[in-house]
Design a protein around this nucleic acid. Structure first.
Length: 702
RNA sequence: GCCCUCGUGGCGGAAUCGGUAGACGCAACGGACUUAAAAUCCGUUGAGCGAAAGCUCAUCCCGGUUCGAGUCCGGGCGAGGGCACCA
């Protein structure tokens, strides 16, 4: 939606109230939240996002009694509001209710200004970001409620920032200690009464300061004065309880999952509406409800509503003419359990069979970070329900979660007068700099006219800024495309797309190919005799096995394929530096080179499988590389007789020393102190301390 | 507005548990090969000073902790992503 209109057609968008089907995910809120604490295979940020989404708030539900106005659902005249800051109760100077609240509707009956405001709120934004940035507005209802403790009269307002869907659709206004209430009170000249003292700081009602919302000690609060946050909440909750005007309550941010969609594309909701029997589920033997395949959408409304053959159905219970439900399901319903179905796709008697127990939960699940909340939370909920139905034996569907970063690209568009927006693929747009090189000018190639730039955002079909890797595959092959994308950045990181560098990936593969073939043309190598290696041969082996260790760790534990590739490139660079003439003076040279190349080829095989398959056979193997086990690192090859260490003076790099591998601290210390360059910086100062990080560095503190 | 993530050369990025900042690659420049171009190979490439050795500065900004900070802490600025004003 852009400017109140649908981006695709430019049609104006309006809010309507319609009946919908919901799944009761809120009944699982506590368990979904608690389990997050044990899901060590999930990224911390995904767990944090889900926890915030579920949003458990522990607080107090307050009652403000009133005499004039309609009674609430429980028959009494009490305005209920939830707060996490019951300790500020004595600072209440007003109450605000949502536009949809019954008290608002009651007060609006003879108040045209209020009625108009309520209408305005209904037309207002429905999206959180727009709501959050809109100006806070309110209108007094003229109604008054009584403070539950002091009995003081508290005016009731309607506020556009109060949500009917959260808590009871009403808030207590404590402008002194809540930023939104503060802003509201300033605007409408409502009293501000500080009741919390934070470390003796000076409160000023002229301007908001963030610490006003901090916890502290109650003041100006009668019998509660001096109490700290928890003690105050406990005391106030206990008093409210005695008065029958409040109790402790836990409120959740999570709402039930609305699965209804008023469109053709989706699983039909298997329900039949009968004039006499009411809502009747479609009997098992009539399932599945199949969508008609001959519908032609006319661009307005749900086409199913216009298909009499689909709509008309006898009631399964009484047989009279009834009407089929036309709402279809949210596609998140399907994605909530497709992975369970994958384990038994041919099972035609049940959703899943016992095979699901063998294959699941999934050891490793990979998805975009954009699914961190909805899809992944719905799947966890769905799995719990299936467990209760005895269909699966586990609670969590995915043991380990990897969320890849999104790929961004430029967005280009034109906006028609009708509000319709047309997006152009960046491949069809030429970007140049203007004469002053200050501004980018984007021009559509096909007509030479300028297009607007919409920044760099996630690739998506709707923004038409995706890149089809097929073009890279066609030109350079699948391995180059894979190598290039995996080398660009670690996979969990956001990536701005650019074709620059694909040549480098292609070049590297050619160099690897050439290195193997140069080696192979020198003939079959002998068997490696580890006990008879020259220093040079030992160094090559050490580097090769260091590379193997790094690739193993990068691919296996760290999932940083870009650094694994870089390590393989470094190894190949080192091998290329060995002069051609000395490659195979002895059979040992050949066998050391053979081993190093095998490590490079095997290490890269998860990334460029096709090329490495061919190279592995070229290296003389009969078994396909994909059937080979991963190579173990030879710990002995990593051993070195000497170690290079860094020497610092006061934390600044001043030189290097080389010491024997097993050198003790005293030896290292005197070697570092003896370094002439270090001496220069020590000068005449006394050495206060020498810090030695074994195998790494010496820091001389003066 | 709130939540999450992230700010490092001309560019993508590396630095894994607080220990040599800039690995690896791209681009650029110089050279070799070539009649020429492409391909390939070799070299240079954060900034400043210096003949050189080397020195100083430098990881968005301002502070702090530490022998030592890109990394940890506090505050700020900026970018991207998500969103249902969550009391």
């Amino acid at each position: 939606m852009i400017d109140g209109r649908g981006w695709r057609t430019g049609a104006p968008v309006e809010k309507r109230e319609i009946p919908m089907y919901y799944l009761k995910i809120t009944a699982y809120a506590e368990d979904l939240l608690d389990a997050l604490g044990h899901m060590s295979g999930w990224p911390e940020r995904v767990r944090a996002m889900q926890a915030n989404w579920i949003g458990k708030s522990v607080g107090v539900r307050l009652g403000f009694p009133y005499d004039i106005g309609p009674p609430g659902a429980d028959g009494t005249r009490v305005l209920h509001a939830f707060t996490t800051r019951a300790d500020t109760l004595m600072g209440v100077t007003f109450c605000a209710v949502a536009a949809e609240h019954p008290l608002a509707a009651y007060a609006a009956r003879d108040n045209a200004k209020l009625a108009a405001f309520i209408e305005e709120c209904k037309r207002g934004p429905a999206i959180e970001s727009e709501l959050a940035t809109q100006e806070k507005k309110g209108v007094p209802t003229g109604l008054v409620v009584r403070h539950p403790i002091s009995g003081a009269a508290v005016p009731v307002w309607v506020g556009n920032y109060v949500l009917m869907s959260y808590g009871d659709g009403a808030v207590m206004g404590v402008p002194a200690h809540d930023e939104r209430d503060f802003e509201f009170a300033k605007k409408y000249h409502l009293p501000i009464k500080p009741v919390i003292d934070v470390a003796g700081r000076e409160y000023s009602s002229s301007e908001w300061a963030p610490w006003y919302a901090d916890h502290g000690r109650c003041v100006n609060s009668g019998v509660y004065d001096g109490l700290e946050f928890q003690a105050a909440v406990d005391a106030i909750a206990a008093d409210l309880n005695r008065l029958g005007l409040g109790e402790k309550q836990t409120t959740w941010r999570l709402r039930d999952w609305g699965i209804s969609r008023q469109r053709y594309w989706g699983c039909p909701i298997p329900v039949i509406h009968c004039g006499t029997c009411g809502t009747v589920p479609v009997p098992d033997e009539q399932l599945p409800v199949v969508l008609p395949v001959d519908l032609v959408p006319d661009g307005s409304g749900n086409p199913l509503l216009k298909d009499e053959a689909f709509l008309a159905v006898p009631c399964p219970r009484c047989g009279v003419k009834a009407r089929r439900e036309t709402d279809t399901m949210d596609t998140f319903v399907d994605s909530s359990w497709y992975f369970l179905r994958f384990a038994c796709p041919d099972s035609d008697k049940a959703m899943v069979d016992s095979r699901v127990q063998y294959w699941l939960p999934a050891d490793q699940y990979i998805g975009g970070i954009e699914h961190a909340i909805l899809h992944l939370l719905y799947s966890r909920f769905w799995t719990r329900v299936m467990r209760e139905l005895g269909l699966v034996a586990f609670k969590e569907p995915f043991t380990n979660m990897f969320t890849q970063g999104m790929v961004l690209n430029d967005v280009f568009f034109r906006k028609a007068d009708t509000g319709r927006v047309e997006y152009f693929n960046p491949a069809d747009v030429e970007v140049t700099l203007d004469a002053t090189a200050q501004r980018r000018i984007a021009v559509l190639r096909s007509d030479g006219e300028e297009v607007e730039s919409g920044g760099v955002v996630t690739m998506s079909k709707s923004k038409n800024n995706g890149v089809d890797p097929q073009a890279l595959v066609d030109q350079f092959g699948a391995d180059t495309a894979r190598l290039f994308t995996m080398f660009a950045a670690p996979p969990e990181q956001t990536l701005e797309w650019s074709d620059e560098g694909v040549q480098g990936a292609y070049r590297f593969i050619k160099r690897l190919w050439k290195a193997v073939h140069d080696h192979v043309t020198l003939g079959a190598p002998g068997l490696l005799d580890k006990s008879a290696l020259s220093d040079g041969q030992r160094n090559i082996r050490r580097q090769a096995h260091q590379t193997l260790a790094k690739i193993t760790d990068d691919i296996g534990r760290r999932r940083t394929f870009n650094t694994a590739i870089a390590a393989a490139m470094e190894l190949l660079n080192a091998l290329a530096k060995i002069p051609q003439s000395s490659r195979q003076i002895s059979p040992q040279d050949g066998s050391v080179m053979q081993e190093a190349l095998e490590i490079a080829v095997l290490g890269l095989s998860p990334i460029i499988p096709h090329v490495t398959h061919a190279l592995w056979l070229a290296l003389g193997h009969r078994t396909a590389l994909i059937d080979e086990p991963w190579m173990p690192v030879d710990a002995a090859a990593l051993q070195s007789s000497s170690i290079a260490m860094v020497v610092q003076v006061n934390g600044k790099l001043r030189g290097h020393i080389t010491v024997a591998a097993g050198a003790d601290e005293g030896t290292v210390r005197s070697a570092a102190l003896a370094l002439p360059h270090a001496q220069k910086f020590i000068g005449t100062s006394a050495v206060r301390k020498v810090i030695i990080v074994p195998g790494k560095l010496v820091n001389i503190v003066v």
